[in-house]
Amino acid sequence: MPEALGLQHFLLVGAALFCMGLYCVLTRRNAIGILMGVELVLNAANVNYIAFSRYGVGGVDGQVFSIFVIMLAAAEAAIGLAIVLGIYRRSGSIDVSQMTSLRG
């Protein structure tokens, strides 16, 4: 294993993905774009889990958690897209900024 390839490298990739996901969620206007942003953040958490399981003291547990994360992402995608479909059939658009019927 190359000496230089330490934990930091992977954590940096994880952090980068995390922030891009954050940015994507904040700026996207259609619901599916936001869902993708959330997927990015989930993947960032996944990278961290695996990196820590490899370098950290945790042993193989980290990978078990990343399997749960993947399962979670699948469940979330299913529910999210079902909701988006429901909204689309009702109002023709899934643009988050136009949903004003609930304004406080």
Partner: peptide, 15 residues
């Protein structure tokens, strides 16, 4: 409104 409520709750919850 109920659809929008669940979408808003979902998006923020997932995030």
């Amino acid at each position: 409104r109920s659809n929008e409520a669940s979408l808003k709750y979902f998006l923020l919850g997932a995030f």
